[in-house]
């Protein structure tokens, strides 16, 4: 039997990361016959594949976003479950990014490669915590791959929001948050901080948030903001997709304080560019310390770095004696920057 090199197992192609011996792609950006998907964010989970293997939550949320016929066929897999695909075996492990998000360990002969998708090692009440998976090659994201990105405790950021609500009871607080994952996490954090008033939702938030609730995640009383009188929104908190917070839509709120929950808010210029008045550093991606700690802890001798600030992370790996290279994969971005409201989200 010939010895497999890592790149014989997984290889970047135009359609995404391709596993030839297994006959599938991971998070393909184009339609493929068989797709293995890490999580349900739209840059990783696209519609139109022949067969999709993912966690139940990922499949459910893809269905919510794309409709019943988003794929030819689907197969659900649990965390810790191992499946044989062609010459490789595939095992899913929690990634701690959003509900249902997974790292995918691909093993062939004695080599194990972990494609971690998007991940974070910070606590999140809305999803299963990140699990460290020992491997030979670790494929890491680099969204916040610069040492300036060190996200503090998310609970402190929520305290900041609540302090502002207390200081400006006559204004509405509008929190921009990506509608899958971030919004529900912010709500859960608000509840953990003891905030028990109803929280209002932009229309685009409703279906995913209700799905989270149906999976047993406690989010307290939620109300659609549509149809609520302007004056009644004073002193309240509303969650909305980031794009909506700078749009005509905000005119229904009394003198709104515009907040934005994102790891990007760590850099002041980024917050100012967006006209954010209350930046909240809450990220669903690992920060620099999280990325570097995870890379080291996997024990992998070779690191492949994708989407984000690859240069700094590759440099760091090399300075630690690890083999490292950027993976030139296109089509993955920061969901917050690319989110465009879908049809039903435009006016909600």
């Amino acid at each position: 039997m010939t010895i497999m090199r890592p790149q014989d197992i997984l290889l970047p192609t135009a359609a995404g990361l391709c596993c030839k011996p297994g006959g599938f792609h991971i998070d393909p950006v184009r339609s493929v016959e068989r797709a293995v998907i890490t999580h349900s964010h739209s840059d990783h989970a696209r519609a139109g594949h022949g067969a999709v293997l993912a966690t139940q939550e990922t499949l459910d949320m893809m269905r919510l976003r794309y409709g019943e016929n988003f794929a030819g066929s689907t197969q659900a897999i649990r965390y810790g479950e191992e499946i044989r695909l062609g010459d490789v075996s595939v095992k899913f492990h929690p990634a701690g990014h959003v509900l249902g998000s997974a790292q995918i360990a691909v093993s062939c002969q004695d080599t194990c490669i972990v494609a971690s998708g998007d991940y974070k090692d910070a606590p999140d009440p809305t999803c299963t915590p990140f699990e460290l998976v020992p491997c030979d090659v670790f494929i890491t994201e680099a969204t916040f791959g610069l040492p300036v990105f060190r996200h503090g405790d998310a609970a402190d950021e929520v305290k900041k929001l609540l302090a502002s609500v207390a200081l400006f009871p006559e204004r509405a607080h509008l929190v921009g948050a990506y509608s899958l994952g971030k919004a529900q996490r912010v709500i859960a954090l608000l509840r953990e901080a003891g905030y028990d008033a109803p929280i209002f939702l932009h229309g685009a938030m409703e279906s995913i948030t209700h799905y989270y609730q149906s999976r047993g995640i406690e989010l307290g009383e939620l109300r659609p903001v549509k149809g609520v009188k302007k004056a009644a929104l004073a002193g309240t908190i509303t969650l909305a997709p980031p794009s909506a917070t700078s749009d005509l839509w905000t005119r229904r709120f009394p003198d709104p304080v515009t907040a934005f929950a994102s790891g990007w808010m760590r850099v002041r210029a980024r917050a100012r560019q967006r006209g954010v008045e209350l930046p909240l550093v809450i990220s669903d991606h690992a920060d620099w310390d999280g990325l570097t700690a995870t890379i080291a802890a996997t024990g992998a001798g070779e690191i492949w770095v994708t989407h984000g600030q690859e240069d700094a992370l590759v440099h760091w790996c090399k300075s630690r004696g690890l083999r490292a290279q950027p993976l030139d994969l296109v089509g993955y971005g920061d969901e917050e920057e690319t989110e465009t409201p879908l049809g039903d989200e435009a006016e909600a």
């Binding site: 910070a122 699990e131 460290l132 060190r150 503090g152 405790d153 999280g290 080291a296 802890a297």
Partner: peptide, 18 residues
């Protein structure tokens, strides 16, 4: 540490170790 410190991490031994 999650209460006291600045870091957000804390999901597994590798990081907590530090």
């Amino acid at each position: 540490k999650a209460d006291a410190g600045e870091g957000q991490g804390g999901g597994y031994p590798g990081r907590d170790n530090d």
